[in-house]
Computed example of a mutant assay.
Amino acid sequence: MPFLNLSHVTAYSYRHPVSFGEHRVMVRPRESFDQHLLDARLTISPEPADVRWLQDVFGNAVAIATFDRRAKELVFDSRVRVLHTPAELQHVDIEEYARSYPFTYSSEEMPDLLRSIERQHHDPLRLIDSWARRFVNPAGRTDTLAMLSDMTTAIRREFTYVPRAEKGTQSPIETLSRMKGTCRDYAMFMIEAVRALGFAARFVSGYVYGPSSGDMPVGGGNTHAWVRVYLPGSGWVEFDPTNGIVGNRGLIRVAVVRDIYQAVPVSGTWSGFPGSFLDMTVTVDARIDPADAPPALAAPTAAPDMRKTG
């Protein structure tokens, strides 16, 4: 159960002082049985007029910052300490009726899963469907977990990872035709592939770390993206096609959403002279802390700093 220190800094720079509209910040990891938030601080410069926290429709923690001063730089600095409990493939326990594919979700679960089963991208030639069907045994039933694991490792093995700093995501059809992309492209492609087979799937944004401080998994040093698939008996199970990971090993969840555009880490507006915007930089560092025990939790502080208490 490693203790992790996470740093995520997003900085915007401008040629002239500009004013800032409301900004939405989604960088606080989710609390769960497998990841415990021990300390979390969000520092914003210039200091906002107000910061309020809310939970979105998926239960993600979102900070809403408003500003009353102009500046040439806007910085969001998130520092987090997490206790993480990795789970391996053998810990995935699927209900008997769902261990072989095809199966149907229960009538109790289906109403809440429907929007996560619904396809989000057009595939008029059924190219993604055909790719996904490669992993289904045409002569009989297919082991559910083995099929999803094979799909995960096939994307890692057959596609070429190409970092891309620009905003936006390729469509799943583009990713399939080009056979390359980023972690977010891979995630959206796999989501559409498993949905083509009738699975409920969601997009996950967060951080990835290696088993030791010297290891850098693919997608490390930036925010990372992967997939959650709903499997009866285990619930939402992690699949990272970028690194071929099944289970939550090395993965820290921040946002879980139905579509990628609901998981933007930082978004907002600014106004000023045309051409004022210069640059945006994002720096992410996720490292295992060798400490044997978490630090004492401090009392809550005033906004914009926030700490976990209780």
Results as ranks from 00 to 15, higher is better:
N60R: 11
V62E: 14
I64S: 13
T66L: 04
T66H: 03
R69H: 13
K72P: 13
K72R: 15
F76N: 09
D77A: 10
D77Y: 05
S78F: 14
L83W: 12
H84D: 11
T85A: 09
A87D: 13
A87L: 14
L89F: 15
H91N: 15
D93V: 10
I94D: 03
I94K: 05
E96I: 00
R99P: 07
P102Q: 06
P102C: 09
P102Y: 07
P102D: 05
T104W: 02
Y105A: 00
Y105P: 03
Y105M: 02
S106F: 04
E109C: 02
M110Y: 08
L114I: 01
L114E: 03
R115M: 03
S116M: 01
I117C: 04
R119Y: 05
R126K: 10
L127M: 15
L127H: 12
I128A: 04
D129G: 10
D129H: 14
S130W: 01
S130L: 04
S130R: 13
W131I: 09
W131M: 00
A132H: 04
R133I: 01
G140Y: 01
R141C: 05
R141H: 07
T142C: 11
T142Q: 10
S149N: 13
T152N: 12
T153P: 05
T153Q: 15
A154T: 15
R156H: 10
R157F: 07
R157D: 15
F159I: 11
R164K: 14
E166C: 05
P172M: 02
I173V: 15
I173A: 11
E174Y: 02
T175P: 04
L176E: 10
L176N: 06
